[in-house]
Design a protein around this nucleic acid. Structure first.
Length: 519
DNA sequence: TGCAAGTTGTAGAT
DNA sequence: ATCTACAACTTGCA
């Protein structure tokens, strides 16, 4: 009987986990492994909140594995997978390695996985690659693609129809064959006292981190609980969900906040899909994609397809044929503007509040992401979306490399969405759903006592009002970075138009040359 | 080729 | 709450 290793990366769950099922199939023992690599450790890549969400998810998984008979739980290792894994195969006498290819959209993960596959072949370890992170596997989409990948929801939905019904989620195994017989030997081989998940402050400080307390705690158990609360316990609401009608600046989230659980694989996306289907079928009226809850999952799937199957690097502009070249600012001045944006120093309370919520809680509403992304790029600051995207990638607990980059391209009118004359106002947009500015008062406390009339534009408050509120603009709260949002956004629209014109000219010339060649 | 549609704008009118 | 003008992008479909 084979000895299998499950390499956990993002599928941090036991329900509907292809790698777990594959590893158990015909195996006498299963060794679950997680590797904390250099990328995870760098706080510039992953903020403290997402890091703790990850650690909580690992602890929950560890607990579930132990409950199901894996005596030592997850084997927690630190280092680079291409070095650590071959060592672990030897130490645990592994025959089969099962893992999910969830992150292979990203070049550095693809490079690592390629190495692992090569080393496994050398070591005589059989690889079982699974796809449980998408609704359907990349290969299934690829087999139905007629030439180009979908870049619009209409195109995607046609493809989804062709691929067929989303597979139903599989249950978590009741018990898992233990693979600990080599545990003590492996400890010796690795020269470490324990493979258990570190839970002490010295671990965090050794990484230059402090332990955060996520508002939305990680783990499969919490994910399933949240699914129950957000979908089944409010079935009518979930069935009628319309994203544009939800509020970006309510104090408690106005959407499900299932995304961090789906991102880390604490929840299977298929489990969520079928939960939504169930409440939609039971409801008398339900909303339809793209605004509905299943529509949100469709967008996720669409961006994954673009990221994996288009052949383009979604984090790139110049070399990415799907992305318009727009001469964004990337000089020192632009980076300074971006740094003010990131640190809630724009002087626009709505924008500063959103960025404060992002830094302190790691989650902001999708429309709040729109507002700050538009402000940072085409709306006001004219900063490069690639530079801005890094802040989201670092601080969001649901950060996903592919989705993040595609959404930044959307918001900056670089790809997928082109109505650049539709521009979010940093003043008016938030007023619709929070006229009193409670959200601003919470996340930018220095503005707490500013009267509602001026809360979105404190510079308009008479000086005595500012003094009375204990918040004088320029003293306690920064002057606005952009004197005139309307004029700035109009000027930016002209810049985008110029970039589009240049793009179309090049495209037309290319087409004419092609035509000339044919005739 | 032309017209409608596209997840989620704003400002001002009714 | 629902209308319109704003100025006018790309994609989809007939």
């Amino acid at each position: 009987m084979a000895r299998s290793m499950i390499w956990f990366r993002k599928g941090l769950r036991l329900h509907d986990n292809g790698a777990v099922i594959a590893a158990m199939n015909g195996s006498s023992s299963v060794v679950p492994v997680f590797i904390l690599d250099r990328w995870h450790c760098n706080p510039d890549n992953m903020g403290n909140i997402r890091f703790e969400f990850l650690m909580q998810s690992l602890r929950d998984l560890d607990c579930s594995l132990k409950q199901r008979g894996v005596k030592h739980g997850i084997i927690f290792l630190q280092g680079e997978p291409e070095i650590i894994l071959p060592k672990a195969w030897k130490a645990f006498s592994i025959d089969v390695l099962a893992f999910d290819d969830e992150d292979e959209n990203e070049a550095h993960v693809r490079a690592t996985d390629t190495l692992i596959k090569k080393y496994a072949a050398i070591a005589g370890v059989r690889i079982i690659l699974q796809h449980s992170h998408w609704l359907h596997s990349p290969a299934e989409y690829a087999s139905k693609l007629a030439g180009t990948v979908p870049t619009t929801m209409t195109q995607f939905r046609k493809l989804l129809d062709q691929v067929g019904q989303v597979p139903e989620p599989r249950e978590a195994p009741a018990s898992i064959p233990d693979g600990d017989s080599k545990y003590e030997d492996a400890l010796v081989a690795f020269g470490c006292p324990s493979f258990s998940i570190p839970d002490d402050d010295s671990f965090y400080s050794s990484l230059g981190r402090v332990r955060a307390v996520p508002k939305f705690p990680g783990g499969e158990t919490n994910g399933l609980k949240r699914l129950e609360m957000q979908i089944f316990q409010r079935a009518k609401w979930a069935a009628g969900f319309e994203k544009p009608k939800t509020s970006p600046n309510s104090i408690e989230p106005d959407t499900t906040v299932l995304s961090p659980y789906i991102t880390h694989g604490c929840l299977s996306v298929r489990q969520v899909w079928w939960a939504i289907r169930q409440v939609q079928c039971q409801a008398n009226v339900s909303s339809k994609p793209p605004v509905s809850l299943d529509g949100q999952l469709m967008f996720r799937e669409l961006w994954f397809i673009v990221g994996r199957l288009s052949g383009e690097d979604v984090s790139d502009m110049e070399g990415n044929s799907l992305c318009r070249n727009i001469p964004w600012g990337r000089d020192d001045k632009a980076r300074d503007r971006l740094s003010k944006w990131a640190n809630s120093e724009t002087g626009f309370p709505f924008i500063d509040a959103i960025m404060a919520q992002l830094r302190t809680e790691g989650w902001i509403h999708h429309l709040a992401r729109h507002a700050v992304a538009c402000f940072a790029t085409r709306g006001d600051l004219w900063c490069d979306w690639r530079d801005a995207a890094r802040y989201f990638d670092r601080w969001l607990i649901d950060a996903d490399w592919t989705l993040n980059h595609c959404n930044w391209q959307w918001l900056s009118c670089s790809a997928f969405f082109y109505q650049y004359f539709r521009c979010y106002s940093p003043i008016a947009f938030g007023k619709k759903t929070d006229p009193n500015g409670d959200y601003i008062r919470k996340y930018v406390p220095v503005l707490a006592l500013i009267p509602a009339k001026y809360i979105y534009e404190p510079w308009k408050a008479p000086r005595e009002v500012q003094v009375k509120a204990g918040c004088v603009v320029g003293e306690h709260y920064p002057h606005r970075m952009i004197e005139d949002h309307l004029a700035t956004s109009k000027a930016n629209m002209n810049k985008i138009k110029a970039a589009y014109d240049a793009h179309n000219q090049v495209e037309n010339e290319r087409r004419q040359k092609k035509k000339a060649r044919i005739s």
